[in-house]
Design a protein around this nucleic acid. Sequence first.
DNA 1: CCTTTAATGTTTGTGCCGTAAACATAGGGT
DNA 2: ACCCTATGTTTACGGCACAAACATTAAAGG
Lengths: 195, 195
Amino acid sequence: MLTVSTSKIAPRAYHHGDLRAALIEAGLAVLAGSDAEAISLRELARTAGVSPTAVYRHFPDKKALLAALADAGVARLGEAQRLASEAAGGGAAGFAATGRAYVRFALANPALFRLSFTHGGFAAAPTQSSDTASLMLRGYAEQFGGADAERLTLQAWSVAHGLAMLMLDGRLPPDDALIDRVLDTKTLFPAQNHT
Amino acid sequence: MLTVSTSKIAPRAYHHGDLRAALIEAGLAVLAGSDAEAISLRELARTAGVSPTAVYRHFPDKKALLAALADAGVARLGEAQRLASEAAGGGAAGFAATGRAYVRFALANPALFRLSFTHGGFAAAPTQSSDTASLMLRGYAEQFGGADAERLTLQAWSVAHGLAMLMLDGRLPPDDALIDRVLDTKTLFPAQNHT
DNA sequence: CCTTTAATGTTTGTGCCGTAAACATAGGGT
DNA sequence: ACCCTATGTTTACGGCACAAACATTAAAGG
């Protein structure tokens, strides 16, 4: 808790306290129930109890706000994967679990997942990003893939990402059993040792 | 060529001739150079030389127009794959070629590819769609996958789709050699016979 | 403590957008 | 020849992103 009053009873001081965080929170709330295109600067400002143009004191334009939301999404996705990996106890089971967690996160947070990739702020860092998920994936790949670590990394990422997108777009049914079948590491990467 | 005059010199009859086709063509032109969000009904109407609301005589709303554009994209993608498959002479080489063609088409037509999946009119037909690409993929899978045909189908589609999206979103470099490496069927599906 | 200043928010205005409603025209079937 | 329906137009509304000019406040330095 901050010392600054952010309670809704507080009689709307001229300054908000932490408008930036409030806008991001409002944005995430919208994304939890609608597509990204449903986000409007004015609506977020309304939710935060602030005038429409106040947003521009914290973000240069709408794209920047969406990029901030995308970052939050990437962080949440990475966290979900980390938890799944730990729950599975690492190793081959952990590797498989991160893949399943990736797709399940996408299905549970469709708009946020989509936005995270569409409006990412990366583009400059092609292959090796600094986010949790990429590092974890690469770690697993080196553990199992040996010399072919990079190829294995990219193939695993691609399968999971493709499956997630196809399910989000309604081209494949969002079936939990289907996820397990498509991401089955024993048939996808049979050359690796599945200890 | 149609018998109906569509030349620009024609002195703008009250009725357009084939406004629906003109709007779709204009939309595809925009998609060739910008993202889908850059499409505006008014702009397309302007391009077609028609008032903004004339569009509504042919499409109930903007989403319907985008869906029509998506259909056009699906058709083009399927055609690109068919050509690639034939050029490779079918068989295992043809199978691999369709995958590469899938990703290359996405890179060559980013906005159209994205729109084709995002605004598709399917959703009712989960697994087996009627489009060219799906049928061809399934044919290949049955040819090589035997009993595991469905799993092989979904895995192959997911890898190609995921790779395409990750490259479109700037998470992976749009490198031609990288496509070949990730989609290498010998390492991805080593259990199948690569005649 | 008081003043200045930079950060943060407001008001007002512009030009786009999607789309609804009412009206206009033209071309084909009776 | 006539009307009916498909197709297009005008006008209007509310919402949007964003720009410019102005207002308020908190914090920093004398």
